[in-house]
Design a protein around this nucleic acid. Sequence first.
RNA 1: GCGGGUGUGGCGGAACUGGUAGACGCGCUGGAUUCAAAAUCCAGUUCCCUUACGGGAGUGUGGGUUCGAUUCCCUCCACCCGCACCA
Length: 865
Amino acid sequence: MSDVRYNFKEVEPRWQKAWADNKSFVSSGDGSKPKYFVLEMFPYPSGRLHMGHVRNYTLGDVVARFRKAQGFDVLHPMGWDSFGLPAENAALERGIHPGTWTRQNIADMREQFEPLGLSLDWSREISTCEPAYYRHEQKIFLDFVKAGLAYRKESWVNWDPVENTVLANEQVVDGKGWRSGVAVERRKLNQWFLKITDYAEDLLAATETLDRWPDKVRLMQHNWIGRSEGARLEWSVLKPEGTELPDKLEVFTTRPDTLFGASFCAISPNHPLAAELAENNPALADFVADCNRLGTSEGAIEKAEKKGFDTGLTAQHPFDPDWEVPVYVANFVLMDYGTGAIFGCPAHDQRDMDFARKYNLPVICVVAPKDADPTAFATELEAGTNAFTGDGVAVKSEFINGMTGEDAKRVAIEKIEAEKNGEGVVQYRLRDWGVSRQRYWGCPVPIIHCDSCGAVPVPDTDLPVILPDDVTFDLPGNPLVRHPTWKRVSCPSCGKAAERETDTFDTFFESSWYFARFCDPKNETLGFDKAAANQWLPVDQYIGGVEHAVLHLLYARFFTRALQTCGYLDVAEPFDGLFTQGMVGHETYKNPDGSWLSPDQVTQSESGDAIHIDDGTPVLIGRSEKMSKSKKNTVDPAYIIGTYGADAARLFMLSDSPPERDMEWTDSGIEGAWRYLNRLWRMVAETPIDAGSLPALDTMDTAAVEIIKATHKAIAHVTEALETFRYNAAVAHIREFTNAIGELNVELTGALPARRFAVETLAILANPLIPHITEEIWATLGCNGLLADQAWPKHDPALLVEDIVTLGVQVNGKMRGTIEVATEADKSTCASAALALPTVQAQVDGKQVRKVIVIPGKIVNVVVG
RNA sequence: GCGGGUGUGGCGGAACUGGUAGACGCGCUGGAUUCAAAAUCCAGUUCCCUUACGGGAGUGUGGGUUCGAUUCCCUCCACCCGCACCA
């Protein structure tokens, strides 16, 4: 019994230094090897590394080290997503300048990264809050403006009253701000938008080609873009004499086949027509204000009653001038979808039905199920409160009578187009991306507002527009607005006094192109060189949390296309492969009074119950939840790495659960990983290493030969598991292989060289998972060079074939025993061996053997009856 | 409401194209070593009956296809996630 203990505290920093000195992870980019770009979503510099980071970057590191060993020129960079609101909050709370706070955090986090031993190329480090980065972003934006991909318009926006800024649709969750968690309000503001909708069709179509993305994310993007086919059509508005209202009301519908079931039109409270009418109608103005107050908050929408306001106007049916319907302002009609106006067909839309019942509007059935009696069906439908939204046959609909679903829609659209009442259109749920934020700590929008010239781009020669440092946070709102001089400039176009735009970009702007910047991070004149981007992009493997499925990941796909349009690069899709990892969770603990306790405040009593470590009071154990400060169930990575080392932390994280699933952090888990490392280390330290070269297999003891075979099996299994992101299975194979090596009796002929070969191979196979200890083993074995530079081994398929196989034997599909036969044994040999088993005989006894199914190498099934 | 996913021992999870369910680990039980503890090592560990041999049940539920189903098809249940008045 040796008490050799693996000294990670000495070993891990030593190899980290060796890799750095050797520039092991600096990509060459010289084209001598195929490229492989591995990227993890870059962190926001909060100042503290958390376990979620450790999991994310460990997963990426396994990919990077594995691909490097496989002979790729790996690009694996790191940087900082360093604009954002927390920096401003820190300024407010502690009086620290956001820049100082952010840069200090970056320095701290860089230090916390070091002991993880990640294979990062730090020479490419970027930080998005530095002018060196965002100056190029300003140029990109101006190019977008030039190309018509960025525009400014006044529009209704989501306003977060806590963050005092606008949010994009993607940043509103359940009617609440994604960070603040408070209900958003609606406001009308002048905003910059990026024309993501120009690419809606392409983004949607291309989701089908992203076959190395999780289906879930593709589906979420598909639904978010939300394509639907339908028609725009015009209704003539019959207005009181002498009024100056528009003549036409344009509506959007996906059901032109139900046009003959129309019983009203409804417009959004934010529709221009509603605003015009409200001018002379205080009751309507109140109604509109009411609707806006309710906003989009919560599930309130779910329960919110359908409410309408009768404008008194009527509209003329496009196919029948004598048919008039009332025009309502309705709270359920959205201004920013379609035309902000609809026609209501109560019989075939549940909302319209609810509305019709409330305001006593007609319900006209114009679609009946194929096999139903149309008259009886219509009678029941028109008397009830449930709309029929299914497929069926058109009735009471003149020229489309008798047609079904798609045919009826097509014919209706043809008629609409023929009569010049409108046209078939494709409508998307996706809206343009509003990028203006009324915040300080972001990239300034490089625009100057001039009374005579309007919004004027800052000339290239004046870029970058640098964020001023001398700002104050003593008042709410954007400090840039009240800065005494910064915004006062002369118009680049006419020279008159003008004002800088004080809005900054949404921070998703920075993360929409950083992967391209990593290809050429030091370029001062350009965001990136086109050739460099074309060389490295797309990212071969991107890794991050699923929470960005429709935010960052959609923006980045759009941005890359927009950059392509502007001639920056020649790729459309930024991320060829995407992997979304699960969260890191931990059990939660509560006092009987409901207050949260941290794991280190909880211990076990003698009877095994959870108790408070100080006073022994009982503790309630809750289920595992994502680590969070508020629930106090966090574990500090620095503490874990200081106690067990980086390899142990990595090993546990990789082995516990499949990487895409949530994992639970446990003390026993990390200890188990630590025990394994020590076992592995003892195995190497306790056995002679100078074992000579591998002799011919037929001169070795069979047990030694088995180890050679097990080695090739391990190569095959581990390689496959690493290729397919089944890292927990990879760890299991490594451990199984380790067990096999440990069981080999070294006294046997050929055992020592076999063992050496096995351990050497084990070191290579385990290296991507636990890089430090395997590097130490490599050196201890006296092998040349760094393990990090070694090539990945290949297995010999011939050695995977066994001479003898064990087959399961079933009787009527139930397992009754096993037989050992030669691998090449024919079916009849297997059958008679199976029938000879006493346990089989006992089952067969007294019955007739009907047939014996033999699947070579797998199973024998005796069918009796 | 719509869309998607998941369900296997006490726990995390394995199981290639349908072919010996529970690999690997955690935990637990017993033993060795130790003055003792830690560490380590050995044995066992799906459940039920049986000293054993052996038998029965078993992958959320109920059915189906098949010689054979964790795997394929249908029903239902539970949990999780996304979207949510998108006309």
